[in-house]
Design a protein around this nucleic acid. Structure first.
Length: 811
RNA sequence: GGGCGCUUAGCUCAGCUGGUCAGAGCAUCUCGUUUACACCGAGAGGGUCAGAGGUCCGAAUCCUCUAGCGCCCACCA
């Protein structure tokens, strides 16, 4: 047995590394497929490996999830806790483009993908190291990467399954487009951007020679104008309905149509419809079969349809057109409006018309709402974000991207009959662009002229499958894993990806397995900087968790993470990390003291026969703590669970019980029975404290466990022990034992000494106690030793502490 | 424009199924070398719980409205 007193300090830098390795070597976190224990499976966000720098907010959200995992493991579950890296798709591409200062149009596809794979590999290693240094208890043998063969196969099978079920369509139409990334996007890829701009009032000339203005923030869309609309009840413009108007500068005629959804009070009451400025345009274009005039190309420049403006960028064209409008530009109002930008690059998204693949989601809104209702949301209010997203859903999910690095579509097109040709299941995964087309040719006409699909899938097409990827869904022969871990017990994630990751995963599981992907979802808030701002590189408020760990330890950082109520944002607060560090030291010191008195002690249940009031009190407080701990942790309220242990440990155990028990341990005259009772209590209390702290601070608790408790407990690690449950027999009530009176006396005497500026140890002559409920002489030894009185006597008290309790202090 | 969250001691936050709920930690002040720990201990000061109404015997806690902050959504053509 190590002698804890010989260890001067706890060197967290050294020891945390040691335990990381120890846990890894001993496979503490391994999922056991053979076990009969109930499985608890967790779906965690696969981070983009291209986010080369992780900040303290990431550390926060992952550790918050991890508290729960550790709790469940110590509750006896067979924990399935995988980690994935999301390394396909646009984020990685953009990372590579930035890092190597290239873009995909000037690099070969192969070269580009190689660089992406390289970045993926490097990123993955950095990440793994980082999670390990945080003490994240992932089973690394379950690591998946969304670009690996397994995930590609799952994604392609998902595609084929949905296609065969008629839920996927290849269609040409207006699609949200990023001119910078030059790819189609889904609605969920958009962010809002507020910008200051001008509402321009532009005169159109009508057949009868009169003019009337429309209002637009986007004059560069003039050459795309295909109709004007007005409300039929608008006396100003109703006369134009059915007539033609001439588009300024471009001098072609467009019809004036009526639409009573047009608000006469809005703009000028005369609305310009272009192909395409926004969803309104598209709606009317579809409904009224308007002409199509596409004036933006894929790179965000004006096309030949824009006449003299062809080749100009959108911004340049706007400027030029406004200038050229001259007297047709009757007024400009400065306004601020909100436009949609691509969330990955901040570029304003446009609409163009190209063929793309879509998953039908808009027609199934009722299903999504129903699934959302079935899911257990922690915290509950997060569900409203999901409902709101479904409510606002307008576009089917566009899953094709005109990029390189991603999962290919398993699709060929028959040049002769137009048939869409798919590979068979056992051929997956395939890359149609590098693989010979299916030997048998077109499945419909037999033609050998097959053209591969060049697009790749949206990254969410893969990450929406994480529960199914983990469960080996794509191998129908492996029913076992699927049955055990799916639907998964819990999804953990942050709130901003409810509309993407959470939503799409629900879509997939609903379509593929007609079930929810998980039973519970736990949504964390964001880690913010000290001032409450979102952490980002551009703000220069980046707090690197590695530096915090180096300075204060991973346990201390985790302690801070456990501060926030579930779902609330949490400001980074170095003071709180320091408190965590102090808690570690306190644990170390208290344990040093306790264990030094337990060195020859052999724990046995029978030693609890002679518990003294102080023992019974602390054991009862411990039971209350355990109760509160479970109550909170079972609903993922780790912060409240932590608070419960924390105040028990610090206030009850250290500041009081240890003081109460010292005289029994030191005094040679103490009976063996009393000593045994004290040791029994110390053993039990400290052991439980360590266990309860273990999910939050896995390192220091393991360290102390291994120094002493392991010798009697025989588990490999504290993290494989079972958390204590409330022992009702140890709970006491006030009728049974009025120990609260003793605490009142202690407090009063301490207050007295403080007011006199006495040392807490200064000996006073006499304490007279008047107690009705309990016999004061039961506590004589305790009060005498703890409060330093020459004698304790029963008698008339002068100071009233409670209705039943009076005392007199005599110097 | 709509929705959600937040607004409680100087700071960061609990409490919000209504009645020891006015709390914790940090910071501040006073004191204390007490053989686990000065990365400590004892004690003190500090808030009309954003504002205004309402329900109730009673509200930080429920309802209504207002203001500020944050996030999400929305067609200002």
């Amino acid at each position: 047995m190590a002698n804890i007193n010989e260890l001067k300090n706890y060197d967290f830098t050294l020891r945390e590394k040691y335990w990381q390795q120890f846990w890894e070597d001993n496979q503490i976190y391994k999922y056991d497929p053979a076990s009969q224990k109930e499985v608890f499976s967790i779906d965690t966000p696969p981070p983009y490996v291209s986010a080369s720098h992780l900040h303290v907010g990431h550390a926060m959200s992952y550790t918050q999830a991890e508290f729960v995992v550790r709790y469940k493991r110590m509750m006896g579950f067979n924990v399935f806790y995988p980690m994935g890296f999301d390394d396909n798709g646009l984020p990685t591409e953009r990372f590579v483009e930035k890092k190597y200062k290239i873009d995909k149009s000037h690099t070969s596809k192969k070269e580009f993908i190689d660089l992406c794979l390289q970045a993926t590999k490097e990123g993955g290693e950095t990440y793994k190291k980082f999670w390990q240094s945080l003490g994240v208890s992932v089973d690394w043998s379950l690591l998946y990467s969304t670009i690996n063969e397994h995930c590609q196969r799952t994604s392609q099978r998902s595609f084929i399954d949905l296609f065969q079920k008629g839920l996927i369509e290849h269609k040409e139409g207006p699609v949200i487009w990023c001119p910078k990334c030059q790819t189609a996007l889904a609605q969920s890829d958009l962010d809002d951007l507020e910008q200051n701009t001008f509402l321009n009032y532009i005169d159109f000339k009508f057949e009868d020679g009169t003019t009337a203005p429309i209002a637009t923030t986007r004059p560069e869309l003039l050459p795309a104008c295909v109709a004007l609309y007005t409300n039929s009840k608008d006396p100003r413009f109703a006369k134009y309905i059915g007539k033609k108007a001439k588009v300024p500068i471009f001098n072609y005629e467009v019809p004036v149509l009526s639409d009573d959804n047009v608000d006469p009070a809005f703009g000028t009451g005369l609305m310009m419809v272009c192909t395409f400025g926004d969803g309104e345009d598209i709606e009317r274009w579809k409904r009224d079969s308007l002409e199509t005039r596409i004036v933006f190309d894929k790179a965000g420049r004006l096309t030949d349809k824009a006449g003299d403006y062809a080749g100009l960028k959108i911004n340049e064209a706007r400027k030029q057109i406004l200038e050229d409008l001259k007297e047709n530009l009757v007024k400009q109002d400065a306004i601020s409006n909100v436009c949609n930008v691509h969330e990955r690059c901040g570029t304003i998204a446009e609409f163009i018309v190209t063929p793309q693949w879509f998953i039908n989601v808009v027609d199934h809104k009722a299903d999504w709402i129903k699934r959302g209702d079935e899911l257990n949301w922690y915290p509950k209010f997060m569900k409203s974000k999901f409902d709101a997203w479904i409510d606002g859903l307008k576009w089917d999910w566009c899953i094709s991207r005109q990029r390189y690095y991603g999962v290919p579509f398993p699709v060929w097109y028959c040049d002769d009959c137009g048939q869409i040709v798919l590979p068979s299941d056992d051929e997956l995964p395939v890359d149609p662009t590098s693989l010979a087309a299916p030997k048998n040719g077109c499945s419909k006409c037999g033609s050998k002229k097959l053209r591969p699909e060049h697009d790749v899938m949206d990254t969410w097409m893969t990450s929406s499958l994480t529960p199914l990827i983990n469960a080996n869904w794509q191998y129908p022969s492996d029913k076992n894993l699927m049955a055990k871990i799916y639907p998964m017990s819990l999804r953990v994630q942050a709130f901003e990806i409810i509309r993407t990751w959470l939503f799409y995963t629900i879509v997939k599981s609903h379509y593929h397995t007609d079930s929810l992907p998980w039973n519970d979802v736990m949504i964390s808030g964001w880690g913010l900087d000290e001032k409450g701002r979102k952490i980002s590189k551009s703000l220069g408020n980046f707090v690197e968790p590695e530096k915090i760990i180096e300075k204060y330890s991973a346990d201390a950082l985790r302690y801070w993470s456990a501060e926030s109520t579930l779902g609330q944002n949490l400001r980074y607060n170095e003071e709180e990390v320091k408190v965590g560090k102090r808690t570690i030291t306190k644990l170390w010191n208290a344990s040093k003291f306790v264990i030094s008195h337990l060195e020859e002690y052999q724990f046995q249940d029978s030693d609890n026969q002679h518990l003294e009031p102080a023992d019974r009190w602390i054991l009862s407080e411990l039971q209350k703590t355990i109760k509160a701990y479970h109550k909170n942790f079972s609903v993922y309220e780790y912060a409240k669970a932590k608070d419960a242990v924390n105040s028990f440990f610090w206030d009850k155990f250290c500041d009081n019980y240890l003081e109460f028990v010292k005289y029994r341990l030191y005094d040679e005259n103490t009976s063996e029975e009393s000593k045994a009772a004290a040791k029994w209590t110390l053993y039990k209390a400290l052991y439980n404290i360590l266990q309860l702290f273990a999910p939050i601070m896995p390192f220091i608790t393991e360290e102390i466990y291994q120094l002493y408790f392991i010798n009697q407990d025989k588990n490999i690690s504290i993290h494989l022990t079972q958390l204590p449950q409330v022992e009702k027999g140890l709970l006491i009530n006030d009728q049974e034992l009025k120990f609260s009176d003793i605490l009142l006396i202690v407090q009063e005497v301490r207050k007295y000494k403080a007011s006199k500026n006495y040392s807490i140890k200064k000996e006073l002559s006499e304490l007279i106690v008047e107690m009705t409920n309990d016999d004061a002489k039961n506590y004589t030894d305790l009060l005498k030793a703890v409060l330093s009185f020459q004698k304790i006597t029963a008698g008339k008290g002068e100071t009233t502490l409670s209705p039943d309790l009076k005392i007199t202090i005599k110097e």
